[in-house]
Computed example of a mutant assay.
Amino acid sequence: MSSGKLQLAEDCMKYATDLSGLLLLYSSLGDAEGMSKLASLAKEQGKNNVAFLCLFMLGRLEDCLQLLVESNRIPEAALMARSYLPSKVSEIVALWRKDLSKVNSKAAESLADPEEYPNLFEDWQVARSVEANAVEARGVYAAAENYATQADQPFITLVEAFRNLQVEAEEPLENGDRDDEVAEENGEEENEGGEEEVNQEEGVVDEDSTDGSAEGEEEWVLTPHQ
C-alpha cells in the first residue's frame, strides 16, 4: 500500500482474510461495492464489528439495527434507533423489555416508549421528520476525491439543520407581521396627528365664532335715551 500498488494490496488482504485491512482500503477509496461485499463476508465470518461499520458507512441503517438485534445487542440497538431510526424505537423497546424482564421485571417496566411518553424524548417529532426527509439521501455516496471540500464544512446535526430550515421559513412571516404592525402604528399616529390638527382648527373656528357673536350682541344692544 505504501508503494501505491492498491490492487495487489487488495488481493493480498483477500487471500489473508484481512477484513480490517480491506475496510481501511475500501473506505479510503470510497468503494461502495467493495464495502457491500465486505459487509457480507464479515457477517459470514462473525466479524460483526467490521460488518456494522461497512453497513453504517453505506447508510444501510436498518441492516445495522438488525445486525445488533441478531447479535443480542438490544440496548445498543435501542440507542441507535433513537439516534438514526426513530420510527423503529417502539419496536426495539418492546424487544428490550421482553429481554430485560427475564432478569429484572421492574427495570423492564421502567423503559419508556416514545409513543407512550413523547414528552420524555426531546425533539421527538423533529427527529421523525428528519428521518423521513433523510431516507433518499442515504444511498447517495460522495466521491472520495471530494473529501477535502467536505471536511471543511461545519459540523451540524440533521436535527439542527431541520430547525434552521424551520426558522428560515418562519422569518419572512414574522417580518411581514412586524411590517404590518409598524404600518398600523404609523397609521394610528397619523390619524392621531390629523385629529389634533382638526381639533386645533375647530378650536380656532369656535373662538372666532364666539368673538363674532359677542361683537354682534354689543353692536345691537339698545340703550335708553337720557
Rank of each mutant, 00 (worst) to 15 (best):
S2Q: 10
S3C: 11
L6Q: 03
Q7S: 06
L8R: 04
A9D: 05
C12H: 09
M13I: 00
K14P: 00
A16Y: 01
A16G: 07
D18G: 00
G21H: 03
L23N: 01
L24S: 12
L25E: 03
S28C: 10
D31L: 04
G34K: 03
S36T: 02
A39G: 06
S40K: 05
A42Y: 02
K43Q: 02
K47P: 02
N48T: 12
N48Q: 12
A51E: 06
M57T: 07
G59M: 00
L61P: 01
E62L: 04
E62S: 05
D63C: 01
C64E: 01
C64A: 04
C64R: 02
L68M: 09
L68W: 03
V69I: 15
E70I: 05
E70R: 03
S71H: 06
S71L: 03
N72H: 10
P75A: 06
E76H: 06
L79S: 15
L79V: 09
M80R: 04
M80S: 03
R82L: 13
R82A: 08
S83Y: 12
S83G: 10
S87I: 05
S87N: 02
S90L: 02
I92C: 02
L95S: 04
W96D: 02
D99V: 05
D99H: 07
L100E: 11
L100W: 00
K106M: 07
A107L: 08
A108L: 01
E109F: 07
S110Q: 12
S110N: 11
A112Y: 00
E115D: 10
P118T: 08
L120A: 07
F121Y: 11
W124V: 07
W124S: 04
A127D: 06
S129M: 14
S129N: 14
V130Q: 01
E131V: 04
E131S: 01
N133H: 11
V135C: 01
G139I: 06
G139T: 06
V140S: 10
A143P: 07
Y147E: 12
Q150K: 09
Q150Y: 11
Q150W: 08
A151H: 10
D152N: 10
D152H: 07
F155A: 14
I156C: 08
I156V: 11
I156F: 06
L158V: 03
L158E: 08
R163H: 15
R163W: 15
N164Q: 13
N164Y: 00
N164D: 10
N164F: 00
L165H: 13
L165F: 13
V167H: 09
E168T: 08
A169M: 08
E170Q: 14
P172M: 05
N175T: 04
G176L: 12
D179S: 12
E181H: 09
V182G: 03
V182W: 14
A183Q: 10
E184Y: 00
N186G: 07
N186P: 01
N186Q: 15
E189Y: 00
E189D: 15
N191R: 15
E192N: 14
E192Y: 12
G193L: 14
G194M: 11
G194A: 15
G194H: 00
E196P: 05
E196T: 11
Q200T: 14
E202P: 00
V204W: 14
D206A: 14
D208K: 10
S209H: 06
S209A: 15
T210L: 13
T210V: 08
D211K: 15
G212C: 13
E215Q: 13
E219T: 11
W220L: 10
V221E: 15
T223E: 00
H225C: 12
Q226I: 14
Q226N: 10
